[in-house]
Design a protein around this nucleic acid. Structure first.
Ligand code: FES
Ligand code: FES
Lengths: 144, 144
DNA sequence: TCTAATTCGGATAAAACTATCCTAAATTTG
DNA sequence: CAAATTTAGGATAGTTTTATCCGAATTAGA
């Protein structure tokens, strides 16, 4: 469904949002540690998110990545997915035709569109702040 | 969502199912032509499907790939997807944790599970015969 | 039986994705 | 100002996916 890069991006952003609720910033190594993702590769992913304006980064001692609760409420899952994988997964044709087009639909169109639009609504309606709530409550986990 | 190989597989299988309704077989080059997919690569994909028992192949003159209407009704989309991409897309964790596990869920679990299960139900409930019906009716298309 | 058509399988190559490493730049702290 | 910390960015590898090519095997038909 999502690429590894995108899954790392989601895990990291949710974690940073949780830490942001305590007014803290997180360093790359802590993020990689807590999400069980490869540090160097995760660095690239976080840089993409920072460039996309999805999270803020600070260099130097006590630097790292952060996301204020106010901003975390505005950052939807769809924005993270789009920044890393593009929006094809929740907007494209399921059978790979150049564009989904109801006027000239693929055989799967009617069946697929429903599921895909549910996915799109879910991604566009879910924000990072919400996803981060279960983490320190101990009801959800970022790695196993 | 699905890999290119899997999209080619779906397009090809639907087409073969349509031709099967007329009791005909289709050759690789005709399939590649009608679905707009690269012939050599499509060959590999079709071989996988044949090995998986999803469609039948015949060598020699007038050979090709075929799928009887009776069998096309039994071949679900999920079988094609699983044969090419595996079942992770409709069974795995959205954030990439090793397994989706409701006892130790990722932050996305509740949101994602619904969409993913809708996808699974759609894939498991849609058969190739049904998908092929619109093709010769001219209401659906395999390429643009 | 010979030939042509066609899939099968292996080898190979190109592109994309995943991953690592190293140096530069920025920032805090002493 | 110097040193330490931390992200940024470029270079480079390894792996997987996508794609092509070619010869072998099989089969229909002349
Ligand atoms: S045309 Fe294929 S999903 Fe709409
Ligand atoms: S644990 Fe992640 S989707 Fe179920």
């Amino acid at each position: 469904m999502f690429s590894k890069a995108c899954q790392y991006a989601i895990r990291a952003t949710v974690l940073i949002a949780m830490e942001g609720r305590n007014g803290r910033r997180m360093s790359l190594v802590d993020i990689a540690q807590s999400t069980g993702s490869p540090p160097a590769f995760t660095a690239k992913v976080l840089q993409q998110l920072a460039r996309a304006g999805i999270l803020d980064s600070t260099k130097g001692p006590n630097g790292g990545f952060d996301l204020t609760p106010a901003k975390a409420r505005k950052v939807k899952l769809s924005m993270v997915v789009k920044a890393i994988d593009g929006d094809d997964v929740y907007k494209g044709c399921g059978m790979g035709l150049p564009q989904c087009n109801a006027k000239k639909p693929c055989p799967l169109h009617d069946h697929f569109q429903q599921v895909r639009d549910d996915l799109r609504r879910m991604l566009e309606g879910t924000d990072m702040h919400t996803l981060s709530l279960g983490l320190d409550a101990g009801t959800t986990y970022l790695k196993r």
